[in-house]
Design a protein around this nucleic acid. Structure first.
Length: 124
RNA sequence: CAGACAGACUGGGCGGCCGCUGCCGGAGAUCGGGGCCCCGCAGGCGAGAGCCGUGCGGAGUCUCAGGCGACUCCGGUGGAGGAAAGUCCGGACUCCGCAGGGCAGUGUGCCGGAUAACAUCCGGGACCUGAGCGUGAAGGCUCAGGGACGGCAAGUGCCACAGAAAAGAUACCGCCCGGCUUCCGCGAGGGAUUCGGGUAAGGGUGAAAAGGUGCGGUAAGAGCGCACCGCUCCGGCGGCGACGGCGGAGGCAGGGUAAACCCCACACGGAGCAAGACCAAAUAGGGAACGAGCCCGUCAGCAAUGGCGGCACGCGCCGGCCCGGCGCGGCAACCUCGAAAUGGGGCGCCCAGCAGUGGGCGAAAGUUCCGGGUAGGUCGCUACAGCGAACGCAGCAAUGCGGCGCGCAGAGGAAUGGCCGUCCUCGACAGAAUCCGGCUUACAGGUCUGUCUGCGAA
RNA sequence: CGGGACGUGGCUCAGCCUGGUAGAGCACUCGCUUGGGGUGCGAGGGGUCGGCAGUUCAAAUCUGCCCGUCCCGA
């Protein structure tokens, strides 16, 4: 368990424009049960230094109950590993349908791996 | 007792750690916008007293402002459904439209009631289906179930194929009568062919063939006559009414289809919370007011006109102001009548479902003002047709009235969760997005009530 | 969340309003033409009309309810 549980409300992408900026500058990266996008924000960005994460659960993932469950499991896994992200980073995650049924331990490991990759990519 | 069906209710429990969100209470540290006035410094004008207003800094006071707007922490409390779903109906609410009428369009459709309203619900009626009883067969009686159930007796259309004929009937095979010819027979008569007529019983076709059954009747037949049933019309009776039952008349007209056009009655303006209200960047655009030479020179061109330069004018920028410098702009306005007007006529465009008709608009740069409006923010946003029950009254009931009790999500890239342990009967369908009333569809297990069937006991 | 359109052979569509026979093009199969292929000519196969009910004698067509696809509105 990472030591720092950061402020979750500030750590979310909340605007359509935020998502669009990430999509414009980022390539699509693939993982086993999700794809992800990320970008670094400039130092003078008004949102501050907090790293932020956005989730997307579209219609193709299933009906409302399944989409809700996927989003909640993702959010919990992201919350537990938020400390791995460097400052001034925006990440967007697109989960796949198997997030619904995979074990939570595996999901946590995958999120941690992705955040580590983002941190490496941001430094480069 | 078991099964099926129908209806009503319910829709895993307990515990631990971590997390999200609304409201209430408490604590903490920090941050900000605007107005007014004062002081200091810098600046401009003036001979000066002084005046001007701009920038920077400081102090005070008022206000937003209510110990409150944002933030953090602590405590308490609430936090998906019976269908939250499909979006099929009906409303509330909001904005837009609305001189009045016509046409068109859409929906509903037995009767009465309930309701804010409905295509919903309750009660009733007729009809249909099934079972039982009954009858020669129907009609009839009892029970159960069903549902888009006004009008083809206003008009129009359609009814393929088959069949003779498909809608104010018809005559294919038949049946019957009469005539001609012919054959058989001694004869009475019989057969065949053909012509004329009668007939709607039988055959055959079809989804459907012009009341049904029985008896009489007849050349053969036929509501041709009679009985029962059905049907139509009339009368009066009961019922708020759909309708019921009674009496009389009529031999029977009127096939089906209106989820065909349509007729009748009734209802309906349109869009929808991404409605709409308030605040409001950047950029682009809109409206109003103000708004300047028929100048001179030169070049191109037949000309209209266009390019360049000058002076004047208008405007912007630099500047506190003047001077000055730099940059931009232009004699035109939809056409026409008229001396002209705020006048008349036309043209074009826009708006109003359509027609008639009505309303609005038609000039440059630039400045000022105004309004709309996007991103974004706030409200709408949950306390009401609210929920509960074993309350009372009215009603067969749906439901209404009165009293009692309860407070039950309110998010906004979108909360109501994640992980673990444990118990059992191992948990279905499924996630609020303005809110209600219904309908429809999906659904594991459990509880209760009713009906039917089977078995067992008495 | 709200509003609207569509679903017919393997593909793209017509037929639906006004109900009785499902049709066109491409594709497919066979035959002829050619030395062979293409082209051309001729013949043929292939459709629960998205599903379930209802109205009707009769439904792709009319009505209702479901399923799926697509489009529009901040």
């Amino acid at each position: 368990m990472p030591e720092a549980i950061l402020d979750w409300r500030r750590a979310r992408l909340r605007k359509h424009a935020d998502y669009q900026r990430v999509y414009q500058v980022s390539r699509r990266h693939a993982s086993a049960s999700m794809t992800y996008f990320f970008r670094e924000r400039p130092v003078d960005d008004p949102a501050g230094a907090q790293a932020r994460v956005g989730l997307t659960t579209g219609r193709v993932l299933g009906k409302a109950v399944e989409r809700n469950r996927i989003r909640r499991r993702m959010r919990e896994a992201v919350r537990l590993h938020l400390g791995l992200l460097p400052e001034r980073t925006d990440v967007v995650l697109h989960p796949r349908k198997n997030v619904l049924t995979m074990s939570f331990a595996l999901l946590e490991k995958e999120i941690a791996r992705i955040f580590a990759a983002v941190a490496a990519g941001a430094r480069a």
